[in-house]
Structure formats: structure tokens, C-alpha cells
Design a binder for these strands. Structure first.
Lengths: 207, 207
DNA sequence: TGCAAAGTGTATATTAGCGTATGTTTTATG
DNA sequence: CATAAAACATACGCTAATATACACTTTGCA
């Protein structure tokens, strides 16, 4: 299965995996080329073909490649596979959340924490605007990017250009964002329907 | 052991050893040629074959050479008793870490550096994946093989099939591998519980 | 709608480096 | 001087990477 892979092939697999998570697709021959510092598309095309022969990739009916889900044998449990997730800095006003200027770093996260087919990002909790139960200043929030939520989900929203974590509740066309613990400081926020959810909090990482 | 070796053969061993430490591989026939001031690749090829016959080198399954014995510099107690510790090369994919093909050499280490009852191995620091405080390219890491660690230990992990040195931290069912200094390049790596470490860094040998 | 520009995968031929092999010349030694 | 070992020049086949080109699809714009 994954026995005799060259360094280049390994690097290619990493690039492909990151591409999948961050862009939702397999890189083109030329993108892979630049990623691997090749100077001819031929080189990366051959590499892809080799990976196909080694059963790491598979061609789908439409000709595009697909990465084969390989199971890691138990005795290799120590071998973590990761994917790079962008860490967004302070969410600046009005700026699209994924603007380049916002990306502070890329953090490697185990692929076991990532659902296939979704985009993710990380956010550093700061201030008390997300002073939810369990979230402390400096924590990293792993957010799955999506625009809808179920009642009860813990979501990330942009309220007055501030990243805010609240529990999502929708009823009668109104959206109510509840703080986990209601006290004087944290009151529910009531909004109409046309505000956008940035994503769902999937994990809180305490550093 | 170095009994009936010609001057050229001795010089060749030195060159090979330096190459191994600095580049992580045995020199090619032509590299060895220029190192020895030969003018034909044949000369160094024959020399290699002779060294193999004299049991200084050994051919591995994959055809590449391996240096059989390898003394750590004198200051590690030439008089003291030594133990042979395997020096692992690039950690090949999916392959058990101690597979034959992975062992680059056997290095003699003073028993004073070794705790009884543990397995050890050596690893060459390369690239920046282990650019931890105090670890420089080319250093040898003495790793005590074990699967558990305490928070704060400096451990060796296999992340994406690359040997990585980080500080171990476990909290909330997540494992966080922290770099010593965090900047854009060195970010924590976030894993879930079911990954295993390879060992604990016990010593850094600067050559 | 039509058409050019850009991006896609693929193909051909070339180059460079590798280990190895052939035969010749040089060197050292009895 | 004779002979064997050492070093030589050169060449072969193999692999990886190279530059360049071709035909096809997608995209944006007039």
C-alpha cells in the first residue's frame, strides 16, 4: 500500500491532501509541478501516474483523480497524517474573512479531525466576545465553514465585525443567538434572517 | 577493525562517514571519485567493492550501501565500553521504523549514555522539521524508544512520515505538539488521542 | 453567439547523472 | 625485465527531469 514511496511522491501526497481540504479539488498537473519545484509538467504527470499504479490515486469515470482512502494498519498508529488549516488573525472590519491579510499562519491538524469535503479554518479566541462556556482567551477554535446550522449548534458569527461564538436558535423567521450562560454581560442577540453564519465550531483547542 | 586497509580505503571511509552525517547518504561513485582524486569512476567503484569484501560496507536489500561500524568521535570515551545503536536514515513510508532498509549504520555509543532495559536508536536531524531549540542540521539525536510521554517531554513523532521533534502536551483528549518557539514557520501540530509517539529525545550529539 | 485567451492533460525529444563494463596505460614489485 | 595491481579513458543502458509542442476544454467578453 504505501511502502515504497519516494520523497517526491510523499511530498506530492501532502500537497494533494492540502489542496483537497483548502480548495476542494485535486491540483492540476501544473499546480503540482510548481508545488514540487518541477519545471516541466511532464514530471508531475508521470508522478501522478506512478501514484495511480501504486494505488494511492484512482481515476474516476470522468478522468479526474481521486485519492484512495487508505487505512493505516494498527501498528502504524503512530503515523499521524495532517493537513494544513489556515489560522485567521483578528477578523478585520468588513474584510472578507479569508483575505490573505487575515491568514496568520497554517497549523497542521490530524486528518482524523477533518470531515471530507468541507473547508475549515482556525480562529484565535480573544477578548470576551466569545466568552462562552469553555472558551478562554487564546484558545484556538476549529471552525467548519458552512452557512447553515441546526438549532443548538455552536456557531461562529460576525456581529459588528467581531467574531462571536453563540448557540444558534431559529424560530418564526427570527434568529436568536444565545450565550451558553446568561448573565448580565452576555445577553442573547436577536437578528433577522439575512445574516450569515461563518461556520460551526467543531473543536476547541487549548494551547 | 581497520587493520588491513590501504590509505585510499581509509580516506574513502572518512569521506563516506562525512557524507553520511552531512547529507544523509552514501556518496555516489563519482562523488567518491572526486573526493579521492580519482579520474575514473571505475577506481572508486572497485574501492567500494573491496570495502564490501572487507566487511566495512554492506549492501542492503535495495542495493544501496550501508556502513557497518561507525565510531562516534573520540571525546565520547574511546576507552569506555560501547554499545552499537542503529542509525536510522530517512524514515521510509509505511515501513516499520526499524526495517533493515532504514538502518544506515551501526554507531558505537558509550554505555554511559544508555539506560539499561531500553531500546535506543539514533536519528540524523535534517531539514527544519526538527528545528527545535538546540537542534541543528546534522546533529544526531539519541532517542529512547517508548510510547508514552509526560507533558513537557521532548519527543520524536512521525508526522506525515517525517521525523519531527516537538514538546508533548496532552489535554482534553487532544495531543498538541508544540514547537519551542512559535513563529510563522513553527506552529503547533494538533492531533487526536490515538496516535503514538516513537520515543523521547535523550541526547543531542553534535558532530 | 462567436471567438480569443488561458488553462487543461498529454506527447516527443533532449539532457544529465547514475552504476557498471570494456579495454588500455601506468605504477610498483619480484 | 616480467608481471600483477592500480588507475586510466571511454562507453553503455537506465532513470529522472528538462524544454517545448499539441489538441482539447473552459472562461470571459464583445
Amino acid at each position: 500500500m504505501f511502502y515504497d514511496l519516494s520523497d517526491k511522491e510523499l511530498k506530492a501526497i501532502k500537497i494533494i491532501r492540502n489542496f483537497l481540504v483548502n480548495q476542494g479539488r485535486i491540483p492540476s498537473v501544473r499546480e503540482l509541478m510548481t508545488g514540487l519545484d518541477y519545471k516541466s509538467p511532464r514530471s508531475s504527470a508521470i508522478l501522478l501516474k506512478n501514484l495511480e499504479e501504486k494505488k494511492i490515486l484512482r481515476k474516476k469515470n470522468d478522468g479526474s483523480y481521486q485519492i484512495v482512502d487508505f487505512e493505516i494498519p494498527e501498528d502504524f498508529g503512530s503515523r499521524a497524517q495532517t493537513v494544513k488549516i489556515p489560522l485567521l488573525g483578528s477578523v478585520a472590519c468588513g474584510m472578507p474573512i479569508f483575505a490573505d491579510e487575515n491568514i496568520e499562519a497554517e497549523v497542521s491538524i490530524s486528518i482524523e479531525m477533518i470531515k471530507n469535503g468541507y473547508k475549515y479554518f482556525l480562529l484565535r479566541a480573544e477578548g470576551d466576545s466569545m466568552d462562552e462556556a469553555g472558551i478562554e482567551n487564546g484558545d484556538l477554535l476549529l471552525v467548519r465553514q458552512q452557512q447553515n446550522a441546526e438549532n443548538g449548534d455552536r456557531i461562529l458569527a460576525l456581529i459588528d465585525d467581531e467574531a462571536t461564538v453563540k448557540e444558534y436558535n431559529k424560530s418564526n423567521g427570527m434568529v436568536i443567538l444565545k450565550p451558553k450562560s446568561s448573565n448580565k454581560i452576555h445577553q442573547p442577540i436577536i437578528l433577522n434572517e439575512n445574516f450569515r453564519i461563518q461556520g460551526i465550531i467543531e473543536n476547541i483547542i487549548k494551547l
